[in-house]
Design a protein around this nucleic acid. Sequence first.
DNA 1: GCGGGCAGTTGACATTTATCAAGTGAATGC
DNA 2: GCATTCACTTGATAAATGTCAACTGCCCGC
Lengths: 230, 230
Amino acid sequence: MPDSYTKEVRDLHLFSDMEDQHFQSLIRAAYVQNFPPQIELISEGDPSDFLHILLTGSVDLFSSWNERETSMATVRPVSTFILAASVREAPYLMSARTMEKSRIMLIPSQNVREVFAQDGQFARAIVDELAQCYRGVIKNTKDLKLRTSLERLANYLLREQLRSGGGASFRLEAEKRRLASFLGMTSENLSRAFKGLRPYGVTVTGKQITITNQADLEGFAKPHPLIDER
Amino acid sequence: MPDSYTKEVRDLHLFSDMEDQHFQSLIRAAYVQNFPPQIELISEGDPSDFLHILLTGSVDLFSSWNERETSMATVRPVSTFILAASVREAPYLMSARTMEKSRIMLIPSQNVREVFAQDGQFARAIVDELAQCYRGVIKNTKDLKLRTSLERLANYLLREQLRSGGGASFRLEAEKRRLASFLGMTSENLSRAFKGLRPYGVTVTGKQITITNQADLEGFAKPHPLIDER
DNA sequence: GCGGGCAGTTGACATTTATCAAGTGAATGC
DNA sequence: GCATTCACTTGATAAATGTCAACTGCCCGC
């Protein structure tokens, strides 16, 4: 049932413009649940019964094939996930597991589709959100196909730096092994990649990253808005 | 101006359910143009002024970074492309060039957004289309990250086989160098990959592919609906 | 505070993939 | 009809990336 997170949810771009009556109807249908760390919330292939909204904590979206597994994205509060599967009534393409203790709101997909049909603002917001998600994945594909692992790491660090405020020093949000998987490499290779960036002015101490030579790193990474801008 | 392709466009999932009045309004605003082969229709970074609909011919969507280039997708008639950029009024993330002589309908993005606001069926169709595109790119990412190039080729061949009717023998639609780029490898490697599939019952003669041992190839490729189903 | 346990690192090595250079073969044009 | 071009192939080699095994260091619990 609704709680103090309602306001934060309401402020999400997806819900911010819709009529209050419709928002309330979604919230009434929704329920909020707490999950411990390392719980598999969703398994790929499952029917998409709920739109999920991460309120607190963090969630890893990952996929598997033939005994292999890769991290596709990390969800941080407050944001929705698996909207595409919900609106298409199609099975999930990714699995989701909590990385830490997490609070999650679940809105039945059925209700989302009903409100979609009634509320033009909501429909518009869903289109925006989907288009943005789509563009995000395209950027990710470009990153994967056009860059080496060292270049991907360099650009990732620049993005994280920006996200953390732009200072020379910042902390990695992700565990390194998850980061490795997200960037499409092994943990061992990530370790070596960090070393490989030392000549370009990157210092690593645990999760603490310091960029001692911004110009050098950018010269190597060559970040590009059509790949890296989020 | 509208022509005999109107019906085919109308039958596209994106337009099939909308009110005729709205469809006509889109068509009136649209124009149709013929392009020679190898023309760059769109350059990534350009503002997205038009929704494009490929009527005949074929179009390659590709991206570049730092002197490198990769093929992202091939568009075949009759279908739309760059819908996401259109609805978000954001710059194109991919470039597009005709691969052969092509006939293309252009609908001003402005009109698409106007009709979207008026026609619930059209809005619903756009959401469906975007969600499908999104899911397509996610599948592609899984293909790239979870499989080796040999496995990607094997699964690509199985998908093409299905698309061509399922017979043991079929023709490749794409040139091999474009296929290589699409699969995320070099031409040289694609050549070797075809050889590498010979033990699994794949024979290649120019563009003609024959799968002499379906079970072996499938055993190696391990196709999976959440990656390969289109 | 001692002993796992575990993420991360390192080194040696294998595999995969890219690069460069040369060759083949089929389609095209004069 | 012959030369040219261009996609594709092949071989030799280099670079990137993955694997395996051992090791380090730190956190956590008892």
